[in-house]
């Protein structure tokens, strides 16, 4: 689903701490300079959202995210145990005469209610997180998801957050680290995935996982190398061999780390980076246009 001339770009990485949020927020700020009020930043890292620290949005709306969990009518229940046998997450147990549900383990699949031979299980709503929307002082449309403290299953909240993509805007999705379900749920809403990595053997191993994930999802991807200049040439060699575009290199530079530690993006503290960041988005647009011409 190509979003016309304003493709939605996700920013992901096979591991945490590579610079996803630094890059995503910097890209949003730089693009907002050239297209004021037309940029949306969506923080899908619902377990630890932190883009707000750099963008300082005023949150105006909050919507709860709810999932369906089982509620057992103990008078109707025959204690047959079918629900516990079928549940793949051990979220329901029949221990002798007692029936227990563990909502934090529940994946909300509904199989317990489906297999119950006497209809003793109802599915009831349970809040697992929140989606917040607002605006940064410079006019970036801001969305972030937040998983409830103590809850383990991020995916429903990620999904609800990623659903806030406005196709009429330039949307940047900041994905959670890794390549598991929440990451996939985030990048699925995008037209192109930018993978941020460090040029180290560790960075390369995680990048390979992330590239493989994108390829299986048939999502085009490119690479941003952060802390360029350290490590080994492995990442560059891999990208060359695999035909993956290296969109930007952010050098290992103490002043960038210092600015980030003060809560500033690249685009805020180093205006010279703005053009390069805008160029990254333009390169992505150009690539997607050429792809769609090729396939149609």
């Amino acid at each position: 689903m190509l979003h016309a001339d304003r493709p939605t770009v996700s920013v992901a990485a096979g591991k945490g701490g590579t610079g996803k949020t630094l890059f995503a927020t910097s890209l949003a700020v730089a693009l907002n300079e050239v297209q004021p009020g037309q940029v949306q930043l969506i923080d899908c890292d619902v377990e630890e959202p932190n883009a707000d620290i750099l963008l300082h949005p005023q949150i105006a709306e909050r919507e709860p995210v709810k999932v369906l969990v089982p509620e057992v009518d103990l008078d109707t229940c025959t204690r047959c145990g079918r629900c516990a046998q079928e549940c793949q997450f051990s979220a329901i147990a029949v221990i002798r005469d007692a029936v227990l549900t563990f909502p934090d383990l529940c994946a909300a699949c509904g199989v317990c209610a489906y297999v119950c031979p006497v209809g003793a299980i109802a599915e009831v709503e349970r809040q697992v997180g929140i989606v917040e929307r607002g605006m940064s002082p410079e006019g970036i449309h801001f969305v972030q998801g937040r998983l409830s403290v103590g809850d383990q299953r991020a995916t429903p909240v990620t999904k609800a957050t990623a659903r806030m993509v406005d196709v009429n805007m330039i949307s940047i999705l900041d994905a959670p680290p890794g390549t598991a379900c929440p990451m996939q749920e985030s990048i699925e809403s995008s037209d192109y995935c930018i993978l941020v990595t460090e040029p180290t053997p560790f960075g390369l191993a995680n990048l390979q996982d992330a590239v493989e994930t994108c390829r299986r999802m048939e999502l085009p991807c490119g690479v941003v190398i952060n802390r360029d200049g350290i490590g080994t040439p492995g990442v560059t060699d891999y990208c060359t061999a695999e035909g993956i575009d290296i969109l930007l290199r952010i050098p290992q530079d103490r002043s960038i780390a210092e600015a980030y530690a003060r809560g500033e993006t690249l685009a805020h503290s180093f205006p010279q980076w703005r053009d390069e960041l805008v160029d990254v988005y333009d390169a992505v647009c150009k690539f997607l246009r050429s792809e769609s011409t090729l396939t149609t």
Partner: peptide, 18 residues
Amino acid sequence: GALAGTGAGVAAAQLVAD
């Protein structure tokens, strides 16, 4: 429960009860 992603204790408890 030995190799379960989550809910290991519940799975083991269910086995004990069964």
